[in-house]
Design a protein around this nucleic acid. Structure first.
Length: 951
RNA sequence: GGACCAAUAGCUCAGGUGGUUAGAGCGCACGCUUGAUAAGCGUGAAGUCGCAGGUUCAAGUCCUGCUUGGUCCA
């Protein structure tokens, strides 16, 4: 008979439509479209309607600009959590939101108008802001969708929705009802550039070179015990400040009662008072030599103590005809300055507190643009920063300056406006507040912090510290684009009208027509029928509307009420809030305060935070970063699954590094996972899940081991997802694909799958195992590699009744009965390693230069295992299984102490399975085949290739 | 200035209550295979575990200080 040209067609090679090339950038949008048309998100929720709930409440990004890497990290993490919960069979909605009101949009719209804002009515301007927000929501929504995020995209929540605005007003009404809201005069961080007060969360700290002035306040009225030590010299109290512009508002100088102060002889005619501990600093700053100490005394001798009465000593203001009273304060330290602290109660928090304690008014003669009012005639109309050098020079000229005019002091972290980047000032203004110590709000919030799970755990300390130290919440802004504070000033009695009855009425109107009604309608139209001033019974015609709007942090802070409760009907706490760690002082913070104040509990059971995206040098990730990869480029070139795999690959509890190289590396990992799936799929081309159930009796030890490793993998996956440690899932998956499947199980299985009879029980048993493995892998990674898993699911044999999306599947559960590694199998794997070492030692040293006795394919090898007599029989009986496991042609067993040796096979090579076998040629009809292969082709003549005609 | 967090191979990560030569994957080098082939397999090199002290028979692991980076606060 003629020799067959090729037996290749007679073996069962892998076959699948699941391409090796992912082509993600092209395929992903197709899947996304299909998910939308198929209403996948809603069908998933419907399928789990009666199941346990898991609610991750989405924090709203700001509706401005395009999304960046940080948004992507955040949304993908949320999506992973929700998809995992869904696969666990839980009802887990994803209602995305947007934060719409606020300064940034207002400024953008103002910019687009080119300064024509003043020509527009408030309502007309607000309509433009609304349109701007709407436009950017549409942009961001498409970008988020591209990340493969399943959510209720067609109906997100927006803080500018009428219903949401109504909820804001109603919740503020509850604050009013409970007595938290009050109006007060208070110095606040004021942005003169943006003409608004700023919340703590809006303040950025930047380096700033401030003027440094050491100012001599004449102390003519010094008490006798001090004056007598001066030897006839005039005495000055020296203060230091970096804000000369606040000097016109100086009303006091504070000293620490517990510190030592000294009277120093400046020259023959003058003496100065500074703290002992700051003498060197003052000498250095003012270019002074060592001065003679005339007297040393405690601060308390001059100012008394905080508890007891204090003598009324006054120094004289350097350029205004006014006294400056000397007072005690224990916040005075020896860190910098002179130990005698300039105090302007209208321009600083500490100053304000001191003023309040000792009855000084919060004098603040500066208008909203940062210019002096006519209360400072010398500088009226001048900007305070413009006045700084003028004041310094004036002090110098009048001899009241101890150092030199024009000297600067570098402040590493000076407060700046987050939008305009300009340095801020402190300015006393009339603002609305939520009292953090009213109703024991602070105490209760701290209690709820303890009742919440913080991941990572140190988040608890962080937010606790913030709540412990935070001042009252300033909720008013003097801007246009936001929700109005529904309060009035009464023209009858001049008092403010703060009433939940009004708020509820306004909320009802807002729900129907939006909160523009506050600006459009008269006071009489905005209060319930019959409402009069609670103080003087004046009629609404005499009411004047408060024009301030609410801090946008209040908007998002009540999302638990506006979205979870009012819209979704979810009355329990959210299971999880998940945002960047900056939200400890942002959204987590305000959400906690509002929920505790109104419902006496935290709005969340657990809070998870992630770090920021940075470049390889740890800096904020931006266009100027080395190897910057724009988000669109990552998505358009590599695909969303690569980005998602990157998210899963890093430990996001710290800052996460993103570089082109890292994406490359993740891309390699992706290919490993994808190729493993492809190979598994390829070997199921003739497999039917219903006809070939997992038959444990037919399994080899190798199959059992693979199943056990799969249970192990499933366990690791569950642990990883349950503890939100997705990088552990990533590493477990790679190790499973590489170390378990590719390197061992699948490599060994090839001969069985390719060459055995298609219906051979061992082959079918292994296919059943492969199917289990594939399901675990595909469903297991689907929260991360959503598109790829969905693609694999489509290509995969399914069980009867299973849906067309992987997300309907149940997350794999480890089966303990399958988790048992066969006895002695680990030993065999160790021997396999030794065999591979031995074979390696016989490989050619140089590429392609094979010398006699050297081995190429391991199938050319014959292995001799030397084994102690008592164990030899066990191994001898399994020689064929061992040959398969080692992927060698034969395993011989010899007696002795443990050893492995390798020789080249001397038997003939089977033309079909390429193993060297004694049995080759034993079947007369197929002289070039081994016994096994001859049997297979004899039983399946259709596999015999057509002979090639002899020439 | 204060508080908290981090620092392990080129990269991403493991290394419960301290215990033999610190692990994995990727990458790299070399080789095999060409029947997972823009794939697969094997072998190998590569770490003063940020630095310096201390506790201990024994420290990547505990303590103290420092450096660098990050976050927050003042």
């Amino acid at each position: 008979m003629t020799a067959n040209a090729s037996w290749k067609d007679s073996i069962l090679l892998p076959k699948t439509d699941f391409a090796m090339k992912a082509d993600l950038a092209k395929r992903e949008p197709e899947f996304q479209k299909r998910w939308e048309t198929d209403r996948l998100y809603h069908r998933l929720l419907e399928a789990r309607a009666a199941k346990k709930k898991f609610v991750l409440h989405d924090g709203p990004p700001y509706a401005n600009g395009s999304i960046h890497h940080g948004h992507a990290l955040n949304k993908v993490l949320k999506d992973i959590v929700i998809k995992y919960q869904t696969l666990q069979g839980h009802w887990s909605p994803n209602v995305p939101g947007w934060d719409c009101h606020g300064l940034p949009i207002e400024q953008k719209v103002d910019e687009e108008l080119g300064g024509k804002k003043r020509e527009l009515s408030a309502v007309a301007f607000r309509k433009l802001c609304r349109a701007y927000a709407e436009k950017h929501i549409a942009i961001q929504r498409e970008q988020f969708k591209r990340l493969s995020i399943l959510a209720e995209w067609e109906r997100p929540y927006k803080t500018m929705d009428y219903g949401y605005e109504a909820s804001i007003v109603r919740e503020l009404g509850r604050f009013m009802e409970k007595g938290y809201v009050f109006k007060g005069l208070k110095p606040v961080h004021w942005s003169w550039a943006a003409v608004t007060a700023l919340a703590e969360a809006e303040v950025e700290y930047e380096a700033y070179d401030a003027p440094s002035v050491y100012v001599r306040f004449a102390f003519d009225a010094a008490p006798e015990w001090l004056a007598s030590k001066a030897g006839g010299r005039a005495i000055d109290v020296v203060i230091w400040t970096t804000t000369p512009w606040t000097l016109p508002s100086n009303l006091a100088i504070v000293l620490n009662p517990g510190l030592d102060y000294e009277l120093l002889a400046l020259n023959e005619t003058s003496a100065i008072v500074v703290a002992s501990g700051l003498k060197p600093a003052v000498y250095a700053a003012c270019g002074l030599p060592e001065l003679e100490t005339l007297h040393t005394f405690k601060g308390a001798e001059l100012v008394g103590t905080l508890e007891g009465p204090h003598p009324k000593h006054e120094a004289r203001h350097p350029f205004i005809d006014r006294g400056s009273v000397l007072l005690p304060a224990d916040y005075v330290t020896l860190e910098q300055g002179t130990g005698c602290v300039h105090t302007a109660p209208g321009h600083g928090e500490d100053d304000f507190q001191t003023g309040r304690r000792f009855g000084l008014p919060p004098l603040s003669p500066v208008n909203k643009y940062g210019k002096y009012t006519d209360e400072v005639p010398d500088y009226v109309g001048k900007h305070v920063f413009e006045a700084n050098p003028l004041i310094s020079v004036r002090l110098e000229e009048s001899g009241r300056l101890l150092n030199k005019a024009g000297e600067k002091y570098h402040i590493p972290r000076y407060p700046h406006c987050w939008r305009t980047k300009k340095p801020l000032i402190f300015r006393a203004t009339e603002q609305w507040f939520i009292g953090v110590d009213r109703g024991e709000l602070r105490t209760r919030a701290l209690r709820e912090i303890g009742a919440t799970t913080w991941i990572p755990h140190w988040g608890e300390n962080r937010i606790r510290g913030m709540i412990e130290a935070r001042p009252d919440w300033c909720i008013s802004r003097q801007r246009s684009w936001g929700v109005p504070i529904p309060a009035f000033m009464c023209g009858g009695c001049g008092k403010e009208i703060v009433s939940h009855l009004v708020a509820n009425h306004v909320a009802d109107l807002t729900a129907a027509d939006g909160c523009d009604i506050w600006f459009e309608r008269s006071a009489a139209e905005l209060v319930p029928a019959g409402f009069v001033c609670p103080h003087c019974s004046a009629a609404p015609e005499q009411f004047e509307k408060v024009e301030d709007i609410l801090d946008v942090w209040f908007d998002s802070g009540v999302s638990w009420a506006a979205v979870l409760r009012d819209r979704e009907g979810i009355t329990e706490q959210a299971d999880l809030y998940l945002e960047g760690s900056d939200q400890h002082r942002g959204w987590f913070h305000t959400s906690l305060l509002t929920s505790v104040a109104l419902d006496d509990r935290a709005p969340f059971k657990a809070v998870l935070t992630h770090g920021f995206v940075v470049d390889q040098s740890g800096r904020k990730y931006s266009k100027s970063s080395p190897n910057f990869e724009p988000l669109e480029r990552i998505l358009d070139v590599m695909g969303a699954d690569i980005l998602r795999l990157w998210v899963a690959s890093v430990d996001y509890r710290n800052d996460v590094v993103l570089t082109a190289g890292l994406l490359q590396q993740v891309g390699e990992s992706y290919r490993k996972i994808r190729n493993t799936i492809r190979f598994l799929l390829g070997n199921l081309h003739d497999f039917n899940a219903a006809e070939h159930p997992l038959a444990t009796a037919a399994l080899t030890d190798l199959d059992r081991w693979a199943l056990a490793k799969t249970q192990d993998y499933i366990g690791k996956l569950r642990t990883a997802y349950d503890s939100y440690e997705f990088h552990a899932a990533y590493h477990a998956t790679l190790e499973f694909c590489g170390g378990v499947l590719s390197a061992v199980y699948l490599d060994v299985l090839k001969d069985r799958l390719y060459c055995n009879d298609p219906a051979d029980p061992a082959r079918r048993a292994s296919q059943a195992v492969i199917y289990e493995v594939l399901r675990a892998l595909v469903v297991g990674i689907s929260p991360i590699l959503s598109f790829t898993a969905e693609e694999a699911w489509a290509a995969m044999p399914r069980r009867t009744g299973e849906q067309d999306s992987v997300f309907f599947a149940d997350f794999p559960a480890a089966d303990p009965s399958l988790a048992v590694v066969p006895a002695g199998f680990i030993r065999l794997l160790e021997k396999r390693g030794e065999v591979q070492e031995q074979i390696e030692a016989r490989r050619p040293k140089k590429k392609g230069e094979r010398e006699p006795g050297q081995i190429g394919s391991s199938q050319e090898a014959v292995v001799t295992l030397t084994i102690p007599a008592e164990e030899a029989a066990t191994y001898a009986a399994r020689a064929e299984e061992l040959a398969e496991l080692f992927i060698v042609s034969e395993v011989k067993v010899a007696l002795g102490s443990w050893a492995v040796s390798v020789d080249t096979a001397t038997t003939r090579r089977c033309a079909r399975c390429w193993n060297h076998r004694e049995s080759v040629g034993s079947h007369a009809a197929f002289p070039d085949l081994c016994g096994r292969c001859a049997d297979v082709v004899e039983a399946h003549p259709e596999l015999i290739p057509a002979p090639i005609a002899e020439p």
